[in-house]
Each structure stands twice: as structure tokens, then as C-alpha cells.
């Protein structure tokens, strides 16, 4: 059932030009950032030659690119998630799901799965560019995989938050603004890292990107993994409850 819903959602995402344009535009932006990193790396190549344990292409090109991708996707995810529930509500198609023998959890999980599959596609497209470095050099696959895992977890969290925002309203644009604002606030929490005020450090701890950094450096901490899983789970549960509330008193 979950798969049926996910399949239809993914299909309708690709029927609209939105998905294609988002994929195309983000690839263009990414290509620019990638070239920029690569040039920087080549400029520093001469100095690295003299160093022992000099950083390789993975640290210097692939990882910074993954860091940049995270920011770009933070801006893009709300546009992808905004329609998940709100559009069904607006088109009155939600009653099709409500009157079918499908539970609320299955509806939400189906929607979420469709988003995750799309994100997997995005990540695999993005990883092609760093992989192209293999033509002329070598990559640290362990480090790269850890970075990709981080990106996937990050996107899973973005999607869960976006899905919840989409449950809140009937207008896709409103849903986009809500998840946009929310994700940006969590991103800003990352900036508080520099100060050592307790509140600020708590704020920094909640930040989605703080937990992304270690993964980019190749450290897989269970604390970071649990953080992302809990984050996603929380918003999924909230979404299920919010959708169920549609049937209840208001």
C-alpha cells in the first residue's frame, strides 16, 4: 500500500515540469561550485606536492561539494515537499485515500517514501560529478560514502519536516514557506557554534548541519545517526497525527 502511494506520487512529480527543472537547475549550480573547488585544488597542487599527508581530491573537492549541495538542497526541498499533502487537499483527492482501506500511517509513509526515492535520485546524480574525478585520479571511497550517507540522512530529515509543513495547510506555497523558514532557522543554529553560551550551544546542537559536519569528515557517530532518525521520526508522527485530525473535531 505504501509502495502504491509512493509510486503514484513519484509519477505525478515527474509529470510536472517542476521536478525536471529542479534537477536541471541544481545540476547547473552544482557544476559551477564543483569547477570552482576543482580549480582551487589545482592551484594549491604545487604546494601540496611538498607536503607530507597532503589532502587529496576527496577532501579538497568532493567533500566541500557535498557540503554545498546540502545548502542547495535545503533551499530546494521545500519546493518538492510542498505539494505532498496540501495539493491533495486542494484538489479534493484526499477523500480517495481516506475512504480507501488505507491507514493514515500508510498514507504518510507512502508520501515520505516517494520523497526519499526522489532524494536518492538527486544524490546519485550529484555523486556523478565527484566520481568523474576517477578519470584522472583516485578517490577515498570510505570518506565519500560517509559523506553520501550524511547527505541522505540530512535530506531524509528535510523531507520529513517538509511533509509535516505540507500537512498543515491547503496551499502548497504556504507549506513551502513554512518548511523553508523552519529549515533556515535550524541552519542558522549552526552559526551559534562559535559562542559558548549554553543556550546557543543547545541551539547549535539542534542544528541539522552540525551533525552533518562529522560525517563529512568521515566520522560516523551513532549520536548523529540517531539524531537524524529521531528528527525524521518525530515529524512523521506529527504528520500522521495532523492528517488524522482532518477527520476529527474542528
Amino acid at each position: 500500500m505504501i509502495w502504491t502511494i509512493a509510486q503514484r506520487d513519484l509519477q505525478s512529480l515527474f509529470f510536472s515540469p517542476l521536478a525536471w527543472i529542479i534537477l536541471a537547475m541544481s545540476q547547473v549550480i552544482l557544476a559551477y561550485l564543483f569547477i570552482h573547488q576543482l580549480n582551487q585544488f589545482l592551484d594549491l597542487q604545487a604546494q601540496f606536492g611538498a607536503m607530507q599527508n597532503a589532502p587529496g581530491a576527496t577532501e579538497m573537492v568532493a567533500m566541500p561539494t557535498l557540503a554545498n549541495i546540502a545548502i542547495i538542497l535545503l533551499l530546494i526541498t521545500p519546493l518538492l515537499t510542498m505539494r505532498l499533502i496540501s495539493d491533495e487537499r486542494r484538489q479534493h483527492t484526499l477523500s480517495l485515500l481516506f475512504s480507501a482501506p488505507v491507514s493514515m500511517s500508510e498514507i504518510i509513509l507512502g508520501k515520505y517514501l516517494s520523497m526519499l526515492l526522489f532524494m536518492l535520485l538527486v544524490i546519485s546524480l550529484f555523486s556523478l560529478m565527484p566520481l568523474s574525478l576517477l578519470i584522472g585520479g583516485r578517490l577515498d571511497f570510505g570518506l565519500f560514502a560517509s559523506g553520501l550517507l550524511g547527505l541522505l540522512l540530512l535530506l531524509a530529515s528535510f523531507s520529513a519536516a517538509g511533509l509535516y509543513a505540507s500537512c498543515l495547510t491547503e496551499q502548497p506555497a504556504v507549506a513551502a514557506v513554512i518548511s523553508f523558514g523552519f529549515l533556515i532557522i535550524l541552519w542558522l543554529g549552526d552559526w551559534a557554534v562559535q559562542t559558548d553560551n549554553t543556550l546557543a550551544s543547545l541551539f547549535a546542537y539542534i542544528s541539522l548541519l552540525t551533525h552533518y559536519e562529522p560525517l563529512l569528515q568521515g566520522q560516523i557517530n551513532s549520536a548523529d545517526l540517531f539524531y537524524y532518525l529521531l528528527f525524521s521520526l518525530t515529524f512523521l508522527v506529527l504528520s500522521i497525527r495532523r492528517l488524522d485530525a482532518d477527520r476529527l473535531q474542528h
Binding site: 500500500m1 505525478s12 510536472s16 484538489q91 483527492t93 480517495l96 485515500l97 475512504s99 482501506p101
Partner: peptide, 27 residues
């Protein structure tokens, strides 16, 4: 089986695709 006041249709799907989806939803 329920037909609401406004039929719950996805305009971007073809009739066959839509009915296939509904059939699957209804197990």
C-alpha cells in the same frame, strides 16, 4: 465505495492509470 461531491481525480493521470491506482488502493 464513495464518490464525493467533487470527484477525487488526478488530472495529470490517464483514466487507466488512475483506475489502476484506485484498484491497488482498494487492495
Amino acid at each position: 465505495g464513495y464518490l464525493p461531491e467533487q470527484p477525487p481525480l488526478y488530472p495529470e493521470q490517464s483514466v487507466d492509470e488512475y483506475l489502476l491506482y484506485c484498484a491497488r488502493l482498494n487492495r
